[in-house]
Design a protein around this nucleic acid. Structure first.
Lengths: 137, 137
DNA sequence: AATTAGCCTACTATATTAATAGGGTATGCA
DNA sequence: TGCATACCCTATTAATATAGTAGGCTAATT
C-alpha cells in the first residue's frame, strides 16, 4: 500500500509545480486545498526540502516553492524519499537491498524471481514519469 | 511491502508444485524445508485450500497437495488471495476499489494517474506469470 | 518590536502483521 | 475399537509502522 505520506507528498509537489512563478506557498494553503492534515503535511514538506526538492522561506510572505524544473523531477526519486524502496521485498531492492534470512538461494527463489520482474516494470514507470507528466505543466 | 504471508504462500505453492505426483505433503515438511513458522504456515495453507488452490488429506499419510496444474495458476489470483489488492492505492484498484475521501476528482489526481500505470504494469506481470514459470516445472 | 510562518522534537492512537497457544476433528492403521 | 497422525479452527499477543497531534523554538519580514 502507498502510504498517505507519499500520497500527500506527491499532491503537494504537483500543487507547487502548478504555480506560475516561484512565489512561496504557505503550508496552510496547500493543506486546505488538498485536504491534508496541516501538521502532517508540515513534516512531509520538511522532508522534501531536506532532500532538495523544495526550498522554503520563513516569515511573512514565506512558504514553500519548488526548486527544480518539474520535468527534471523523476517520480522514482520522489518515491524513494517518501515511500522508501520501490521493490516489494528487500532482496530485490537496488537501493535498499537486504538478504532474506529464511532463503538460502535467491536465484532459486520463486518470490525473488517474481518480485524482480515487478520491480523492473515499476521502476521503469517511476523513472520515465516526471512531475511535469503528472501536473500537465 | 510484500507480507510474509504472501511470501510464504508462494514458497509453499512452488514447493507443492514441484512434487512429482500428487502425494500429500505435511505442513511440517514444508515448514522445515522453507524455514517457515509451522503455525503461521498452517493458516496460510488453510487459506489456499479454502480458495481452491490446494487440497488436503487428514490423518496418517495426510497433508496438502496442489489441485490445479501449475501452468493454470496465475500469480495474479494468488496475490489477490494472499496479499489483497494489486494496486498500491484503492482508488485505482479493479477488484478492491474505494474512493479517496480527500480527493474531489480522480481524473485530475496526479497520484491516481501514476498509480494506475503502475497497477497496469504489475497486473500484466502477475497475470502472465504462472506457478509453472516460477518453479520450472 | 510584533507578527508571521517555517523548524523541530516528542508523544499517542490505531491498525496491521506475524506469530503463538491450545484444543478440536477427521482419517488411517493395527 | 483405539490410538496416533495431521489437518482444522479460534483466540490472543508482541512487535512494528503509520498517521496524526501537541507544543514550543527560530528566522524573516514589516
Amino acid at each position: 500500500m502507498l502510504s498517505k505520506k507519499t500520497k500527500y507528498g506527491i499532491k503537494a509537489l504537483t500543487y507547487l509545480a502548478r504555480q506560475e512563478n516561484r512565489t512561496p506557498v504557505q503550508i496552510a494553503t496547500i493543506s486546505k486545498s488538498e485536504n491534508i492534515s496541516l501538521k502532517f503535511l508540515e513534516s512531509i514538506l520538511l522532508t522534501l526540502r531536506k532532500n532538495d526538492f523544495l526550498g522554503s522561506k520563513k516569515g511573512k510572505g514565506g512558504g514553500y516553492y519548488i526548486l527544480k524544473e518539474p520535468k527534471d523531477i523523476q517520480m522514482a526519486a520522489v518515491m524513494r524519499i517518501l515511500e522508501g524502496p520501490i521493490s516489494m521485498i528487500p532482496c530485490v531492492s537496488l537501493n535498499f537491498y537486504e538478504k532474506c534470512e529464511d532463503c538460502p538461494d535467491e536465484n532459486a527463489c520463486a518470490v525473488h524471481k517474481l518480485m524482480a520482474q515487478v520491480r523492473d516494470s515499476s521502476l521503469k514507470i517511476f523513472k520515465n514519469t516526471t512531475l511535469a507528466d503528472l501536473c500537465n505543466c
